[in-house]
């Protein structure tokens, strides 16, 4: 029997929770989470980390190994992962009940800073409204959106509904 992710592309709650670092690290500032569950021949994330905190792979099919304790949350990896599987979470950003998430976004037209967008979960369901804090355009053509979201949804929000085309 095929597993949930094999059938739907959506990971289980257990898989998702396993991407989080410990409470102490979470309280310190931004960190990357890598939602890469399948051994495929792919390694750009390793070179994307300017600090070398994603360990070199013995085999190119290995799953990435991120040193989350040391991760600075710079987010360079987000736009360089071909699978769009890396996100930055910052639980120290904003007010008590708020957090920031940075997600890859490849849809035109792009939202603008201070826009309110519809934040979606891994199944494309609407979760909450989010404020765009920054729109970071990179060389790779993959934009990174910095979103202010309710803190309780840091494990849920992973996408933004594409805006209607002009």
């Amino acid at each position: 029997m095929a597993s949930q992710i094999e059938r739907t592309g959506v990971p289980t709650k257990e898989q998702i929770e396993s991407t989080l670092p410990g409470d102490e690290r979470r309280a310190k500032g931004p960190y990357a989470v890598i939602e890469c569950w399948q051994e495929i021949p792919c390694d750009p994330c390793v070179a994307s980390c300017p600090f070398g905190y994603i360990a070199p792979m013995k085999n190119i099919n290995d799953l990435p190994k991120l040193d989350q304790e040391s991760c600075t949350g710079c987010g360079n990896c987000i736009a360089l992962c071909p699978g769009l599987a890396i996100f930055i979470i910052d639980e120290t950003f904003g007010g008590e009940d708020e957090a920031m998430i940075r997600i890859p976004h490849e849809f035109a037209p792009l939202p603008e800073k201070e826009d309110i967008v519809r934040a979606l979960d891994r199944e494309g369901n609407y979760v909450a409204d989010a404020e765009v804090v920054r729109v970071q355009k990179g060389k790779s053509g993959c934009t990174v959106l910095h979103l202010l979201i309710p803190k309780k949804f840091i494990l849920d929000i992973r996408a933004v509904e594409p805006l209607p085309m002009r």
Partner: peptide, 23 residues
């Protein structure tokens, strides 16, 4: 098939767009 043949990360990208994958 009873499972996605392509890379799961590609499937995840379209799942986030609410495109159903019917195995």
């Amino acid at each position: 098939l009873d499972r996605i043949g392509g890379y799961w990360v590609h499937a995840s990208k379209i799942a986030r767009l609410k495109i159903p994958i019917l195995t």
